[in-house]
Design a protein around this nucleic acid. Structure first.
Lengths: 221, 221
DNA sequence: ATATTGTATATTGGATCCAATTTTTCTAAC
DNA sequence: GTTAGAAAAATTGGATCCAATATACAATAT
């Protein structure tokens, strides 16, 4: 008897599912800063008990996405202007380095994927999709760096500020500038110019940070 | 498994206490790579139930210090040579930048503290204390950078590889070299030479990484 | 003796219950 | 009507119990 091998990958645990869903909701700004997260309420949403919810919240707290206080519960973490500023500075620093390391290893597939995301970003009219396409574009290039640890750090850093970025892209016309900068980065990659791609990446992140901080200062004043 | 039992009736939650204790034990190498961590066993050590233990394990997993598998439990995560190499490269990159940012802000208190730790490191004969003094020395300088987010990243990066570093310092005479390099870094800081302090910091971390990787390759072969 | 099958044990993830404390609501006095 | 205090509700952290599954081991067949 011959049977096709079946992949019996474990279904994700309830805690994993809740964690992923909440992380996504926070990153995308669906859960506003300061929003209260009741364990009971979330448990009911996912049809589970509070145990996996608590585990998910604990993980989110480790990543700085929420804060918790005993008897009071969890709230979506807000960032001060200074914190946002620092994270952008850090991202610019690290992502420029990742880009520099990636360029020599970029193959045709990676470049084709990046080009696809780059075009997609420029054409997309639905603001809710900009954030994801933006990530896909950058990661498709960064992956060639062969630095999984760096990429993990980049991911968690981006997680912290992504919702602000998305809000700003939606409310201003920062997309056009981002689109221009993406095209320039892609061009440098196609030419194999690691130094230029790196500098453009740094400036791209710093630009976004500056407009966002200006936007938030205005908004919060 | 060597692990100090702690009384749970304190301000922090049981989960916090278990997390801190396990983190410390892993970082300091008291829990060996590959060591099985049974929820029941840990719960008994801390006189609690498995619930806070599970929360602690979940957090440790988020930081890459353990891996868990359903029905099998948690094991202390081991790192491949490549992963260790990458983390050292990353640390050198980030810590050099932090040092560069810190130097202009160093005041007399910070320099005095750094000098104290530097001397302490050179005089300490108990290998178990090298790791902690080493951290204190570097952090006393890094703190002046005014970059809490960078420092958090540095901390988690160091957490991942600290136990290997400590083992190597204990088994080789890497301390003497580290001590020399610390003195050179301190000197550059005293002279206010940010560029030099930054380069020396980068080389200091890279040196440690190279000796460690050489040591591990030999040991694992 | 070896391979295979069935069973007992160990271990984790989740549900439910309990204790501690905060927040809210209601009542009573002014 | 307002305010102080007490009772009720809400909410979290932890303990205990249950379900699912992996592992170890004994029993059996070849």
């Amino acid at each position: 008897m011959k049977l096709a091998a079946v992949d019996v990958r474990q279904a994700a645990s309830a805690a994993d599912i809740v964690y992923d869903a909440l992380r996504k909701a926070i990153i995308e700004g669906d859960l506003a800063e300061g929003q209260n997260l009741r364990q009971d309420q979330i448990a009911q949403m996912f049809n589970t008990s509070r145990i996996p919810v608590r585990e998910a919240l604990s993980r989110l707290e480790q990543h700085g996405l929420i804060t918790t206080e005993r008897y009071k519960g969890a709230v979506v973490a807000g960032l001060s202007i200074e914190e946002i500023d620092e994270i952008f500075e850090f991202r610019a620093f690290v992502e420029a380095e990742v880009m520099r390391l990636a360029v020599p290893n970029l193959d045709q597939d990676a470049l084709a994927a990046a080009r696809k995301y780059c075009e997609e970003f420029g054409l997309e009219t639905e603001p809710a999709r900009w954030g994801e396409i933006n990530r896909s574009f950058h990661y498709s290039l960064y992956a060639a760096s062969g630095r999984p640890y760096y990429l993990q750090i980049v991911r968690t850093s981006l997680d912290r500020i992504d919702r602000y970025l998305r809000a700003q892209l939606t409310l201003t016309n920062g997309v056009m500038r981002a689109d221009r900068e993406h095209k320039a980065i892609l061009e440098a990659c196609l030419n194999g110019d690691a130094g230029l791609a790196s500098r453009l990446t740094r400036d791209h992140v710093l630009d976004a940070g500056r407009s966002l901080v200006a936007f938030l200062k205005d908004q919060r004043a």
